[in-house]
Nucleic acid binder design. Structure first.
Length: 203
DNA sequence: CGGCTGATGATCT
DNA sequence: GATCATCAGCCGG
């Protein structure tokens, strides 16, 4: 484990790896921060899924639309969509400007603002607070108002450095899709209880 | 724990 | 009109 860092800077766009898969792995262990009037929420990203160019399961596969345009803004921007009539999900755009690529943030380990998260998800255990993309967005109070914002500067929502060393990273098939289901493009920190999904995928 | 299912509305065809 | 990058609740083992 090692010492936990209390202060951390935001990630610079230049240091984000180029390419969706490389960035999806890089983001494991980094910090997601939401600065709101009521206070700061932060968490360690422990699970991501890559949606690369040409992937039929990806929202950007059929080209740019009003909904998915944020995934074409160049790496390091937020793409937030509404799904199943109930949930929001947060992605990080991942390719060069004009190219569609996205990384779904599936789970974080809460660091700060836990009481704020619990207020949004009453009754949830600490492990379940932000475990799963819909729960993460709810706990962090993320919706379409953040769609398209730059995550590489300290605005209301940004990406920070890792606050402690990152553990071994595992890979598995992605969750909840039917197309391109064989791709091993879900990444997670091994042995981390804040990771979502069935046990068999978290080995 | 694992499997199943209904809820619910934006989006695109 | 179909689909959907999900979740909570319920059931059985």
């Amino acid at each position: 484990m090692g010492a936990i860092r209390a202060e951390y800077r935001c990630l610079r766009r230049a240091e984000l790896p180029v390419g969706t898969i490389a960035l999806a792995r890089y983001l494991i262990g980094k910090t997601l921060v939401h600065d709101a009037p009521e206070g700061r929420r932060s968490g360690r990203i422990v699970e991501t899924e890559a949606y690369v160019p040409g992937d039929a399961a990806a929202h950007h596969f059929r080209g740019m639309t009003p909904r998915n345009r944020s995934m074409f803004l160049g790496r390091g921007h937020a793409y937030v969509y509404f799904i199943y009539g109930v949930w929001y999900a947060l992605n990080v755009s991942a390719e060069a400007k004009g190219v569609g690529g996205g990384i779904l943030l599936r789970a974080v380990e809460p660091l700060r603002g836990i009481a704020l998260m619990q207020a949004r998800r009453p009754g949830a255990t600490l492990e379940n607070l932000a475990r799963g993309p819909g729960r993460l967005a709810t706990a962090f109070d993320i919706d379409r108002r953040f769609d398209g914002i730059d995550l590489c500067k300290k605005g209301p929502l940004w990406l920070g450095e890792a606050v402690r060393p990152t553990g071994a990273i595992g890979a598995s098939v992605r969750i909840g899709i039917t197309l391109e289901a064989h791709r091993l493009q879900r990444y997670y920190e091994r042995n981390n209880p804040f990771v979502s999904g069935p046990k068999r995928l978290n080995i």
